[in-house]
């Protein structure tokens, strides 16, 4: 790359006859084309293409495809197939500069800065604003309000998660009561033999923790498999590298931290309701 800086342009590829011998003498500048564009136009590395500002061929120039890149997935453009070209900045400026603007009169209005740790964004913005009067720095999440829909989506997901957990708790409790009730005769016999309530509760709690742990592990495996399947399907459906579902370590730990105590508690609550009855009444169905 000549300047090490790449700009991009929504390109208009003009129909172009095969390169003539004279055209091949001067090597055209390099560009990168998106995978989608390469597939759509059957471009390969080394292909020579002609780019213009519009369909009439304004400022048309030849370029050589130096590489094909996978565009950075952008959730806000889901469903759009990115057919784009990345040019070196001087080439881009040459093409896009109005005729009455002299070279070198361009200016940069904004710069995106990627931080090693995104959590430093607030502090970084404060430092820049303090040191460079006239420059406004702000975390990208606050910049254009583009994160708004995703915040709403996140809250919606949270609401769904809460409703799911509440519903699952009710279901789990009902299921556990039925399962524990299946064992009422066994519990009744144990009470008659002389096992104290606490001893039986501890036994049931241990079983509950074990079952909840196995259930949580099974749930995680299922989630990981589903993650793969969902991502594969939607990446295929929208022809994107976007990741739609990601089971992170934190998500997994949160799930386990909720599921295991919930399962164990449901077991104990159900068992306690049962054990309040006398041993003989339990044993006699």
């Amino acid at each position: 790359m000549r300047l090490g800086v790449i700009a991009w342009l929504m390109a208009i590829l003009l129909p172009w006859p095969p390169a003539t011998a004279s055209a091949q003498d001067a090597t055209p500048p390099d560009v990168l084309v998106s995978r989608h564009l390469a597939e759509a136009e059957d471009l390969r590395v080394g292909s020579v293409i002609r780019l213009a500002l519009d369909a009439t061929g304004t400022k048309a120039r030849e370029f050589r495809v130096a590489g094909i890149y996978e565009p950075t997935p952008d959730p806000s453009r889901l469903g759009q197939v990115p057919r784009s070209v990345r040019l070196h900045l001087p080439d881009l400026l040459d093409m896009t500069r109005p005729l009455d603007v002299p070279a070198g009169a361009e200016y940069v209005a904004s710069v995106n800065v990627a931080l090693v740790d995104p959590a430093d964004a607030e502090q970084f913005a404060r430092d820049v604003n303090a040191r460079l009067p006239g420059v406004l720095a702000q975390p990208s999440g606050e910049a254009a309000g583009s994160a708004g829909p995703f915040r709403v989506l996140e809250r919606f997901h949270l609401a769904i998660a809460v409703v799911t957990i509440v519903a699952a708790t009710v279901f789990l409790l009902a299921l556990t009561i039925m399962l524990v009730d299946e064992r009422r005769e066994t519990v009744g016999v144990l009470r008659l033999i002389g096992l104290p309530v606490r001893r039986i509760l501890v036994q049931i709690l241990l079983e509950g923790v074990l079952v909840a742990s196995v259930g949580a592990a099974f749930g995680l495996v299922l989630a990981l498999l589903s993650e793969q399947l969902i991502n594969l399907f939607f990446q295929w459906r929208y022809d994107t590298a976007l990741v739609f579902v990601r089971i992170t370590r934190d998500v997994a730990l949160t799930c386990v931290a909720i599921a295991v105590p919930l399962g164990a508690s449901a077991t104990v609550v159900a068992s306690w309701a049962l054990l309040r009855r006398g041993g003989l009444r339990l044993a006699r169905r």
């Binding site: 016999v189 008659l192 033999i193 002389g194 104290p196």
Partner: peptide, 24 residues
């Protein structure tokens, strides 16, 4: 309850009409 349970465990045996054995 714990003391009565212990009393049953150590000093009292029960036999019922329906046996009440643990099936497993």
């Amino acid at each position: 309850d714990a003391r009565r349970s212990l009393l049953r465990l150590r000093h009292i045996g029960f036999v019922f009409q329906r046996f009440f054995l643990l099936p497993m």
